[in-house]
């Protein structure tokens, strides 16, 4: 395996881990503050699943890289430009409408991605994806149910869901963009062609939004950059919180 090939593999797995980590961190912010006790429990479930996925992906990426970094080293000791998550997951929670729309857009994508990834030639990746796809199917269902409730609820909830959609829609294109560095991985059947997920994703989202009496937003020029380390301003603040202890007490075990 060439160095370049290995680097591309590691980077693509880190991206999977970073998506889960960053969204898990965001969802964790809701803990104790959700609109109902039942939602507090559900959101904590989502957060736990995502942190679990992040742990599996990042530990694996670290092993493959062979530089002595584990999941914690990757999560807590990289700076913003080394994070490979998509911009959608780092968006601030906003109100519950914006949070749950973000979840729908992302979970539907992640479910399709993991279904394909479960067939990867990389058996370790396939195993993680096969486990995670069950979790993510639940996330998608929960988010879809709530988007329908909000969209087809009251006038206020409809408008808030609509605002949430408008906020997040800019970041959708990036989910399906294929990094040129991944071309070799696709040929080798190690990674998934995200481009191919767009059409089924559009159908899923179209159905949910229709049930929610919401319109698909008009096309916007997609904001991209997360996959190459060009993030929004929000990620740096998240990392300053998340990485505080590891930065303040270097070398300590916890």
């Amino acid at each position: 395996m060439s160095d370049q090939h290995l680097q591309a593999r590691v980077a693509s797995i880190i991206a999977l881990g970073d998506d889960a980590l960053v969204l898990g961190q965001r969802i964790g912010e809701w803990c104790g503050h959700a609109p109902t006790l039942e939602l507090d429990l559900s959101l904590a479930n989502l957060g736990l699943d995502l942190i679990g996925q992040a742990t599996l992906f990042l530990n694996y990426a670290g092993e493959l890289e062979g530089q002595g970094r584990n999941g914690d080293a990757l999560a807590f000791r990289r700076d913003v430009y080394d994070f490979r998550n998509c911009l959608l997951v780092e968006q601030p929670n906003g109100d519950f409408g914006r949070t749950i729309v973000r979840q729908l857009l992302f979970s539907a994508y992640q479910r399709l991605l993991f279904e394909s990834l479960a067939k990867s030639a990389d058996s370790r990746l396939a195993e993680i994806a096969a486990k995670a796809v069950k979790e993510v199917s639940y996330h998608e269902r929960l988010a879809a149910d709530w988007v329908v409730r909000l969209g087809d609820g009251t006038e206020e909830s409809h408008n808030r869901a609509k605002d949430g959609l408008a906020w997040n829609w800019r970041f959708v294109d990036e989910l399906f963009a294929v990094d040129p560095a991944e071309a070799e991985l696709l040929t080798a059947g190690l990674m998934v062609d995200r481009n191919a997920l767009r059409a089924p994703w559009d159908r899923i989202i179209g159905t949910v939004l229709s049930d929610a009496t919401l319109q698909i937003p008009p096309p916007v020029r997609g904001v991209v950059g997360g996959r190459t380390g060009r993030h929004s301003e929000h990620l740096g603040h998240m990392l300053s919180e998340m990485q505080f202890l590891q930065r303040a007490y270097p070398g300590a075990s916890w």
Partner: peptide, 12 residues
């Protein structure tokens, strides 16, 4: 802050 969410669930 969650009142509108609970109202929406009931209305739906």
């Amino acid at each position: 802050n969650g009142a509108w969410v609970r109202d929406a669930a009931m209305a739906h």
